[in-house]
């Protein structure tokens, strides 16, 4: 890694990859060189089943990442406000 900016989040969820749906367990979030975008650096997220398993990759610029993070936070806030989130033990 050039910037060495990497964060990992443990995820319980599902994602649809090249071979269909899979259980995703990790989100690797990095700010580094993208593969597809033309930007020098980008916010990259790899949703992984495992490091060598199924994967969904997204790359976006920093402003888009902030907008996405804000949208996620807002959606969760509204769900909490509506008492719609049930915690599973």
């Amino acid at each position: 890694m050039c910037t060495n900016i990497i964060e990992q989040a443990t995820i319980t969820g599902a994602a649809k990859g090249a071979d269909g749906w899979f259980r995703m367990k990790t989100a690797l979030v990095s700010y580094d060189h993208p593969i597809h975008l033309t930007d020098e650096h980008a916010l990259n997220i790899d949703f992984l089943e495992s490091p060598s398993g199924a994967r969904v990759a997204v790359e976006m610029d920093a402003a888009s990442a902030r907008a996405l993070a804000a949208a996620i936070t807002e959606a969760i806030r509204r769900a909490e406000e509506a008492d719609a989130i049930v915690q599973v033990a």
């Binding site: 490091p51 060598s52 990759a57």
Partner: peptide
């Protein structure tokens, strides 16, 4: 870290923290 396409390996590198 393993083998695959260059971008597959990049994910392995990120997972390992470099």
């Amino acid at each position: 870290l393993g083998h695959g396409t260059v971008e597959d390996v990049q994910v392995l590198v990120r997972s390992a923290g470099g």
